[in-house]
Structure formats: C-alpha cells, structure tokens
Nucleic acid binder design. Structure first.
Length: 241
DNA sequence: GTGAATGTTAACAG
DNA sequence: CCTGTTAACATTCA
C-alpha cells in the first residue's frame, strides 16, 4: 500500500506510541538497534513514502518498498525486519528496508516537495520540475526529489486529472498546464488520504487499471520505456504536445 | 503454476 | 567519469 497517502495513514495508526518508552528494538534489518532501548519515541512522521521514528539523537527510517508492511500488535510467523516493543503494545515491520539517520530529521529532509505536507510549495516543485526539461512527465512525477510521495497510482490519476499525456516532455508543456499538474497531484493525494482515513481503503480510480475513463473513452495501457512499469491513460482526453 | 503488483538501488554497459 | 539501462530483492494475491 505504500504511496504517501498510505504511509501517512499508517502514521496515524502509530501515533499512540508517540511519547512512549521503547523497551526493546530490533529486527534483522536494524543494526545497532539496542541504542534505542529505554529511549523515548519522540515522534512518528513521514517524508513521502519514508516512515520516520524520531528519537533524540537519531531517526529510524523505514521504507515499505513494494511488499513491506507495518502492523500494530500483530505478528506473523516470519522474522521481523524491524520492531519496536513498548510496555504496552508493539510495532512490527515485515519486508521493510531500514536505515538510521543521525541527528534531527530536519537535517535530512526538505518537506517542501512532500505532496501531503503542510509546507508543500507548488512554486518550488515547479522550479525543480523545470530543471528537468528533457524528462517525460511520467518519469518526473515518480522522481522522489521532485514529487515526494508520488507512486504509480497517483501518477496515473493525476495525469488524467490534469489532462496531460504521460509521454509529454516537461519542456513541451505550457507552464500553466504544469501548474495544473502540480495541483492535480496534491488533490489526488489528498483524496486518497481522505478515503483511507474514512474507510481504511482506497480503490476509486479513473484510469489506473481501468478499461474506460469515467466519461467513457478508452483507456490505453502501456509499459514505460524506462523502468517498464505500467501506465494507464486516455489518448483522447490527455493532451500530447 | 503464472504473472503482476502501491519501489528503490546496486551493478553494469557504453 | 557520467548516463542510462538492467537486475535484484522480497511476498501476496488473482
């Protein structure tokens, strides 16, 4: 489930542990985890798809990649890649990638590009996008340093919402339309998050894995030249410059 | 049994 | 050395 809205939703489930003391930390992907024993979990935050467990001197960064999952008070029969145990309750991560960031998270991250953060800056993202004129929209959207937190679902849906063909080069698209795209990304992500918060699932799509758009035109499915991931779009409703 | 899936990065080729 | 492509990783579900 790991695009930014899903990670933020996950953070919401973990917030009750904020301020609690870690009794035992570990997992096969967390070297030196004992340094977090008896330390207070100061905060749980996110940067796009990164899930961050903040301690005084360091932050544990957890990434779910494609298959990872993080669960509360629930264990599978396989070894945990990551865990935090508290006096009451525990957080368990499976198939997650973990790294320790020294110091404060602010030293590692710029939230102006995070599509769900309150300091998101559309003008800054525009600037970063324009620095990549030869990239296709499909690729620049997945560039985590430009659109932090966008995954394949948001990419497909936002391009459709903005009426832009995924194969457009950044340089070919009028600035006004690029601004629409930035707004569409934020709107799409916010809607995903809202759905998750309300119902625990998000499964409403216009083009992603669809055969027809809501307005009835055919959806084309192609593999991207770079990376080979699937992209869904409407030839008819998404403009190619 | 097969294939595909919400992702990233090390390794490699040119 | 830089740039772009491929492989690898690991699991679950249809």
């Amino acid at each position: 489930m790991p695009e930014a809205p899903a990670i933020l939703y996950l953070r919401d489930q973990l917030l009750p542990f904020k301020g609690k003391i870690v009794k035992h930390a570990g997992g096969y992907n967390v070297p030196g985890a004992q340094r977090f024993h008896h330390k207070k979990l100061l905060d749980v935050c996110t940067w796009g798809k990164h899930l961050l467990f903040v301690f005084k001197d360091a932050t544990i960064k957890v990434h779910l990649m494609l298959f990872g999952r993080v669960v509360v008070n629930d264990r599978s029969n396989v070894n945990r890649a990551f865990f935090l145990e508290f006096a009451s309750g525990e957080i368990n991560g499976y198939l997650v990638k973990v790294a320790i960031l020294e110091g404060k998270p602010e030293a590692h991250y710029d939230w102006r590009t995070d599509i769900l953060h309150h300091t998101f800056s559309a003008s800054y993202v525009m600037e970063k996008m324009m620095e990549r004129p030869s990239m296709m929209l499909a690729d620049v959207l997945m560039d985590q340093s430009v659109f932090t937190g966008v995954g394949n679902k948001i990419r497909n849906e936002a391009l459709y919402a903005a009426g832009l063909h995924p194969f457009n080069l950044v340089s070919a698209v009028p600035e006004r339309k690029l601004k629409h795209l930035v707004a569409a990304v934020r709107k799409t992500a916010a809607a995903f998050y809202k759905d998750l918060s309300r119902t625990g699932v998000h499964n409403k799509f216009s083009v992603y894995k669809k055969e027809y758009t809501p307005t009835g035109s055919a959806v084309t499915q192609k593999k991207l030249p770079k990376g080979g991931r699937k992209i869904y779009f409407s030839e008819h409703e998404q403009e190619l410059f």
